[in-house]
């Protein structure tokens, strides 16, 4: 047993490519499966959410304009960075959640593979879901999917890392930016994932990660007028009604998902139809 004192990590939020503390100064304790204290996590406030939305909005236009090829490479780069830190994530998940190493390995593997799967979607979407519509007249008419804007998400409690990636990746594939609230009980690998994001090529503001309490943040996400869509897969069913009511104020698109499915990507895309005459 070494006498060396560990240098412990301070876990902060991930907003606009930086790692700020909550403006509220509040934290909450995270303990491992055996009840041993691990870290103080930021308890994000509605103002942190507001800042994250500002960052996400500012980043959206540029991220949307990036070519599908580029977006695919950026997401693939996240997978590369995560792969290179497999051991760290397996350790963290094992220690923090008390799961077996084999299960932790499987989750990290699934995370990397899931990111690779999403990366390949960026440049397929419009060819698979777009359409050239045969209107009855001399018009060229096509429909293409297009980004919706800023999307909020509540990641599920478990699996905490894979759930987070399943919340983030389908949103950004189509050019949206995201503000996601990580698992409340197991947020540590989420914040380590933010370090992965910070060292990959994701432009600042495209992905913003908060830690804190769902019942505190979700209603503010639902009512925020500059959030266009909301993935509530991580919320308990009994809160959905109130969230949807709050979201109706700007007719937010609110969905929950059961699986990683192309429908999950398309849910946060708008379809734009363009008409143009065909003539001499």
């Amino acid at each position: 047993m070494s006498n060396r004192i560990d240098v412990k990590k301070t876990y902060k939020l991930f907003i606009n490519g930086a790692f700020p503390r909550s403006e509220s100064g509040r934290t909450y304790e995270i303990k491992n499966a055996n009840g041993v204290f691990i870290a103080n996590l930021c308890l994000a406030s509605r103002k942190d959410l507001k800042d994250a939305v500002v960052a996400a909005r500012a980043a959206q236009s540029r991220w949307n304009k990036a070519s599908a090829y580029n977006k695919g490479q950026v997401i693939y780069r996240i997978a590369e960075m995560l792969e290179s830190r497999r051991a760290q994530f397996v350790d963290e998940i094992t220690v923090f959640t008390g799961t077996t190493k084999i299960k932790a390995q499987k989750e990290v593997t699934d995370c990397v593979d899931r990111l690779v799967w999403y990366a390949g979607w960026t440049d397929k979407l419009s060819s698979l879901t777009g359409a050239l519509n045969p209107v009855a007249g001399p018009y060229y008419n096509f429909t293409l999917p297009e980004s919706m804007g800023v999307i909020a998400a509540i990641a599920p409690e478990t699996p905490s890392l894979l759930g987070l990636i399943d919340a983030i990746a389908p949103i950004i594939v189509g050019g949206n930016t995201v503000v996601v609230l990580a698992s409340t009980k197991a947020p540590l690998s989420a914040m380590s994932f933010a370090e992965v994001l910070a060292t990959s090529d994701v432009p600042v503001g495209v992905i913003n990660i908060l830690t804190g309490k769902k019942d505190e943040i979700a209603p503010w996400m639902a009512s925020h007028m500059d959030i266009d869509g909301f993935d509530i897969s991580g919320l308990d069913a009994q809160s959905h009604g109130a969230i949807r009511i709050a979201g109706a104020e700007n007719l937010k698109r609110i969905f929950r998902f059961k699986s990683a499915d192309p429908g999950r990507i398309l849910a946060f895309l708008e379809n734009k139809t363009v008409w143009h005459p065909i003539g001499l």
């Binding site: 001399p138 018009y139 005459p277 065909i278 003539g279």
Partner: peptide, 13 residues
């Protein structure tokens, strides 16, 4: 002649 606006055939039809 260069200052003339174009004519959209479908619209004119």
């Amino acid at each position: 002649l260069g200052a003339l606006s174009g004519v959209d055939q479908v619209g004119a039809d």
